[in-house]
Nucleic acid binder design. Structure first.
Lengths: 189, 189
DNA sequence: GGGAAAAATTGATCTAGGTCAATGGATATT
DNA sequence: AATATCCATTGACCTAGATCAATTTTTCCC
């Protein structure tokens, strides 16, 4: 019973209880300890992952500067997958790592195909998820291009209060493309 | 015969000639004159649009500053649609306008549904397109967060030489989140 | 082809936010 | 509980890139 994911799906499409039971059979639970990797830069992503609880970070490693650049955070009810790598079986461009003990449920590539074949109404759900994510990326680009660092920080806190709570400030700084010191200064006002 | 789109589709999935003839029946051609709007901020997007030739810009209007912030350009073989608006029938957040005489082919919402029902293998094509776009947005966020203005400009020229050719510099500046003056200075080196 | 409008360039000046280094708190590990 | 590591804060200084204003160049249009 992957209740949290059921609820998420039912917000977008209709599924009967029997269908949900079939659905569950394709997925497995997994627990990641703090610091454990879900996916590493250069590997092929073979699972699609849904976060039930905890927190993950996804980051690029900047080869020249040697720094980690946060691409996104994933907390409960978010997906944490490199879709390009998962679908096209190309090496992943980024790394996904647990920030704390994290419960996820995951599905392997082949099981994912089988599931969509047996429950085709899920195509729609996954397209909706993709589009929502796409919309949020577009919004983020505009925010980055048009808002000052301080505005961006406040915007982040307002939009993602749960993430702001559990993620250290220097990672939020990286996500926002500003320095950790500057976030300190913003807060002291 | 929407040849350019056929070629694009055949790069990703298989379709027979008969299927392509059926495919074509759902689409209509349209020509936009320079300055003409394909979609305006606040409207519902009722068509999905594929650019055959010409160039379009998509931009947010920054309400406080009153400026246009470029979200993307679309030239030949690109899609130019507000997907969130098209699929969820929500008011669009941005405006799409022709930068020069532009030939597009478009499909209405209902026709799009009908087409997917009659040619279900297209689901895959559109998912691939969506994912590619997602990858490019993720890349753009990293570039914006980690590269200096000058690097970003060179990166843009290297990745999108065709766009750089036909789009005025001050719009590229907006896309990159830098000032037009600074691009001038970059070029004089 | 000539005038107007739009775009690009250049110079001068200013500032948001970075960098570096030192210090101080928290957290975690034994 | 003590120590080590990680993270946040603070101050001093610096620079990438913005802004503003004045030309110059290009493009458009009758």
């Amino acid at each position: 019973m992957h209740l949290k994911l059921h609820q998420n799906i039912l917000q977008h499409i209709k599924m009967t209880e029997e269908e949900m039971i079939l659905f569950d059979s394709y997925w497995t639970e997994r627990v990641l300890q703090k610091g454990e990797y879900l996916l590493r830069n250069g590997e092929l992503s073979i699972t699609d992952n849904y976060v039930v609880s905890g927190a993950l970070k996804a980051f690029y490693i900047n080869p020249t500067r040697g720094t980690e650049e946060i691409l996104f955070f994933a907390i409960e009810d978010w997906w944490a997958t490199d879709l390009l790598s998962f679908n096209k079986q190309k090496p992943s461009n980024y790394t996904i790592q647990a920030l704390e003990t994290t419960h996820i449920i995951q599905i392997h590539r082949q099981a994912f195909q089988d599931m969509l074949a047996s429950l085709p109404q899920l195509e729609r759900y996954f397209r909706i998820i993709l589009e929502s994510y796409l919309g949020s990326l577009q919004r983020r680009i505009i925010v980055q291009n048009t808002m000052a660092a301080e505005e961006r920080y406040h915007d982040f806190i307002a939009h993602y209060p749960l993430i702001a709570q559990k993620v250290p400030q220097y990672l939020i700084a990286s996500y926002l493309g500003i320095s950790p010191e500057f976030i300190s200064r913003i807060k002291n006002k």
